[in-house]
Design a binder for these strands. Structure first.
Lengths: 208, 208
DNA sequence: ACCTGAACACCGTTCAAGT
DNA sequence: ACCTGAACACCGTTCAAGT
């Protein structure tokens, strides 16, 4: 008689959390966070609208779980890229991840989820970034300058991803290049001055 | 007898749009976009909950107006910085704006407002960025390389702003420096290779 | 132990009606 | 021309009750 339940036994169907996360991920990627309501989610999953509360304290916690999945994926992709393609490969991978999963990336960095309040999320996010920082620090280990440069590198790829995602980079700037080539070219315009004392270098370069 | 109306004549009180934008800006900066509901806004403004619809087609259009204010402010600050402090000054101004108006900045770049769908917003946003691109292109006018470098420069400051805003940069990385000094030091680790053919330069730098 | 259904306090948006 | 009040179709969250 029921119209939407597809499960065998229906009542306890093994793993509702996983089912919810899968369905939520689909809604997220198709329509964005704002369209991801618990009620729509439970409709798709064929459970009552109160069911998620047995597994997630509130909506933000479910979003936090989705964001955590994203950081895990990004972190892994970065580690693989570091081994296979070096520093610039990591940057291209970062931007590539954002373009391949735009809504997920927005969720991870958009501020809707307060990362600090969700322990598992906080930890997996931190781990993803340690990779980038470590790779850059390893190249030129003069403490503070290298650390600053690693933040600049991260900011560069992060900002490029964000600008492309939001469509802020004009079509004209692409100049007919493929997306990957464009990203590669833009990143190639940058040089890191990690070795030099940052302050002095700044003074030199600024006088233009 | 009315409890909340503070206006003289009350019914048509001159400039409801401006009143709404002022109140909305306050809610935005205090509590963020997600807390900015039209109903809460109308409660504060002392009008009926349907009143905004005489002036804005929907909630997103009101948010678009708030974002447009932000881009106008940012654009102006950038133009002043360009005149007074040169290229690096513009970058510091960009990050400074984001840190001074975090919720506004999030609204401007968070993807909640579809910029392309709001004409006035689209135009003021474009104008704000022409400034940055122009300043960099003027320094080294070799068509494509310079354009790519200007995008990289923008991505750099934008990403740094975003990472600082979301609290993704660990306290430890600051190493006791003031925020302004930290930003300045991070930006100083970067050199632009706008003059050189981007591709060749990339190949050289990559082999590390 | 896990899920449901009714209930509550919110939303955004529409529209006939008021001034 | 501009604003209101009732109405509609949604939300997130809570809680007693069901299996």
């Amino acid at each position: 008689m029921s119209t939407s339940r597809r499960r065998k036994h229906s009542y306890h169907h093994g793993d509702l959390p996983a089912t919810l996360l899968r369905a939520a991920g689909k809604i997220l990627e198709e329509e964005g966070v704002d369209a991801l309501s618990l009620r729509e989610l439970t409709r798709r999953a064929g459970v009552s609208h109160a069911a998620p509360y047995r597994h997630f304290p509130d909506r933000e916690s479910l979003l936090a779980a989705l964001a955590a999945e994203g950081f895990a994926l990004l972190g892994e992709a970065q580690r693989e890229a570091a081994a296979a393609a070096g520093l610039r490969g990591m940057g291209e991978t970062y931007v590539g991840f954002a373009l391949a999963h735009p809504q997920r990336f927005r969720l991870m960095f958009g501020g809707t989820v307060r990362i600090a309040r969700h322990k598992a999320l906080r930890e997996v996010a931190t781990r993803a970034f340690d990779g980038l920082a470590g790779a850059l620090a390893a190249r030129s280990p003069e403490a503070q300058g290298a650390r600053d440069a690693s933040i600049a590198a991260w900011a560069l790829v992060h900002g490029l991803a964000q600008l492309l995602l939001e469509g802020r980079v004009a079509q004209a700037a692409r100049a007919g290049r493929s997306e990957a080539r464009f990203v590669s070219d833009v990143l190639a315009t940058i040089r890191f001055a990690a070795g030099a004392p940052a302050r002095a270098a700044a003074a030199v370069d600024q006088s233009a």
